[in-house]
């Protein structure tokens, strides 16, 4: 009769079964830790890039224009990095669930923890010069591979949103220098201005409005913080 114990012992004695060495286990553990760290760093990079993108494009100001602004905010939202960060966080949570203190608790805790941690570090990273420096290098040709992330003026304009520097201002119009070229912005009595603020030369502003024959009729204007971009 087949004895499973003798069968396994026989395989060990004949050398058919060998214990994996501690070194190979150590290498596999180190590789897993390195992979987890890479996923974490990438997730943080994407989160901070998303925050940077929202801040410098002025998209965070769009909801203040009402329903139209909210619609434009969703159109301008950096969905690709946000989706990428979400996928990376799912991978990270699955990797973290190999650890007893993680899998003994609900997945929701691990997911919220990963979200809070990457959000906090992402916000902190956004305060540094990292993304500004990468953005400068993409525009000067040093990091062409990242062009697709950092330079998207056309995408913003197609959504009816214009970000740029005011070059020449008058009482009913101004010229706006955007990344995609110069735009004439026409002001009307219905244009929503920032309260207690006039638009002057050198201001970095966000304009939403309809473009016809090269002239944008402004529906609303917001001044973007001077330190942005």
């Amino acid at each position: 009769m087949h004895d499973p114990i003798q069968h396994v012992l026989g395989r060990i004695e004949r050398g058919e079964l060998r214990m994996r060495s501690k070194i190979s286990i150590l290498v596999a553990t180190a590789a897993l830790a390195a992979a987890s760290a890479t996923v974490f760093v990438l997730a943080i990079y994407l989160v901070s890039f998303g925050i940077f993108s929202l801040r410098t494009s002025g998209a965070l100001l769009l909801p203040s224009f009402g329903l139209r602004g909210v619609r434009m905010f969703f159109a301008a939202f950096p969905w690709a990095p946000a989706g990428g960060a979400l996928v990376l966080m799912i991978i990270l949570v699955r990797l973290a669930r190999l650890l007893p203190f993680v899998y003994r608790r609900p997945i929701g805790y691990a997911a919220l923890g990963a979200l809070a941690l990457s959000g906090a570090i992402g916000l902190a990273l956004d305060q540094t010069a990292l993304h500004g420096a990468i953005n400068d290098r993409t525009t000067t040709g040093g990091l062409r591979v990242l062009d697709v992330f950092y330079a998207k003026p056309d995408g913003m304009q197609s959504a009816g949103t214009y970000v740029g520097i005011v070059t020449t201002a008058s009482s009913d119009a101004f010229l706006l220098q955007t990344d995609a070229g110069e735009v004439v912005v026409q002001l009307t009595p219905e244009t929503r201005y920032p309260q207690g603020r006039t638009i002057g030369n050198g201001d970095r502003v966000l304009v939403i409005g309809d473009r016809q024959d090269g002239i944008v009729t402004a529906y609303g204007i917001r001044v973007i913080a001077a330190e942005s971009k």
Partner: peptide
């Protein structure tokens, strides 16, 4: 069950250092 149990002990031996 015998075959699977045998496989369990085979894997346990191989990964015992883990």
């Amino acid at each position: 069950a015998e075959d699977i149990a045998q496989e369990v002990f085979t894997k346990a031996y191989v990964h015992l250092n883990q």
